[in-house]
């Protein structure tokens, strides 16, 4: 993959140069049917830039099924396999095994990347068993969970990755029941409990970091996992132009901190490591799904965010 830098012969300011590490070639094609401002679609564009045509994708029934297009269309420039909701981990295991049996090089430099791309529902809930099996058996493949924090394709129902206080169509709030009552499930911690060689969080607002992690996932043998924060304007009741801003704020508030877990070591990759997290309210106020939260609700969420953030920092300190 040729980086933009080499294609574009111009003098480039230092601060922009980093952005140009993103490969230039597009393998995610326009004309796809994602909603306006879709974080998942942008995520796919980055993954397809990172791996080019040297990847085989598996997508379960989710928004990305629609994004990739109905028959006979495809927005992908790489081979793509659509499968049932809960099977991503198992299907990528089968593909990897088959490629190996055929004598193909899988993972590593110039190897084929076997990539599973599933949403938070398909990963944290219905697909958790197959994910665990895939991680535990040690297949040479990458599982990406694009996290938009609810079942968006079926019309915005809560998943175990939906945060505290969020409105969804099945946590509507009312006289008797509050909105979403449970805190966001830490899928990445479950993944790390498998002692995988490589796991990381990433955000569509930080593509250089995401693409660097994708490359790392390619180099390191064994199963790798990336949880990609991908805002959904439709489900979050947020303006379509705010998707990047929200993804950035999720990181800056430490609601969704960027970090890597590599062979037992934690490393935090925050854009400004010295900076204190911004108040969670900055992230919440741009989204209609949080508009019913009371001051107390916001405090509950804020406390959870900071506690989790402290825990992560401790882990990075002790196992850094």
């Amino acid at each position: 993959m040729v980086p933009l830098e080499e294609v574009r012969g111009m003098e480039i300011p230092e601060n922009i140069k980093k952005r140009l590490s993103i490969p230039f070639e597009e393998n995610f094609y326009a004309g796809h049917t994602a909603c306006q401002g879709c974080g998942a679609a942008l995520g796919l564009r980055y993954v397809l830039k990172a791996y080019g045509k040297k990847a085989i994708f598996t997508i379960p029934a989710c928004c990305s099924t629609i994004i990739a297009g109905p028959w006979p269309y495809s927005a992908f420039g790489a081979p793509l396999f659509h499968t049932a909701f809960e099977t991503t981990g198992a299907v990528i295991s089968g593909i990897e095994a088959a490629l190996k049996a055929k004598g193909y090089k899988v993972k590593g430099k110039d190897g084929i990347m076997v990539v599973g791309w599933a949403g938070d529902g398909g990963t944290a809930d219905i697909g958790l068993q197959a994910l665990s099996g895939f991680l535990e058996r040690g297949h040479d493949a990458l599982y990406i969970m694009y996290d938009n924090e609810a079942y968006m394709n079926t019309g915005i129902q809560r998943s175990s990755s939906t945060p505290y206080g969020a409105w969804t169509t099945n946590t509507p709030g009312g006289k008797k029941h509050f909105l979403e009552k449970r805190h966001k499930k830490k899928v990445i911690d479950i993944v790390i409990a498998h002692k995988v060689p490589y796991a990381a969080t990433a955000s569509i607002a930080f593509p250089e970091d995401f693409i660097r992690k994708l490359k790392k996932a390619q180099e390191i043998p064994g199963p790798s996992f990336i949880q990609l924060f991908a805002p959904c304007p439709t489900g979050w009741r947020s303006p379509t132009d705010k998707s990047i801003e929200l993804a950035r704020l999720a990181v800056q508030t430490a609601y969704f901190p960027l970090f890597e877990y590599e062979n037992g070591k934690y490393k935090i990759n925050m854009p400004n490591p010295k900076k204190e997290p911004k108040p969670i309210e900055e992230f919440l106020k741009l989204q209609g799904r949080f508009k019913y939260m009371t001051k107390e609700d916001i405090e509950v969420l804020q406390e959870w965010v900071l506690r989790e953030w402290e825990e992560l920092k401790k882990k990075a300190e002790v196992f850094g």
Binding site: N27, Y29, A30, G31, H32, T33, A68, G69, W71, P72, Y73, S74, A75, F76, G77, A78
Partner: peptide, 12 residues
């Protein structure tokens, strides 16, 4: 779907 990138004829 045998043609990669065939979504391009869908003018969104």
């Amino acid at each position: 779907a045998y043609i990669p990138g065939s979504s391009v004829i869908n003018k969104t």
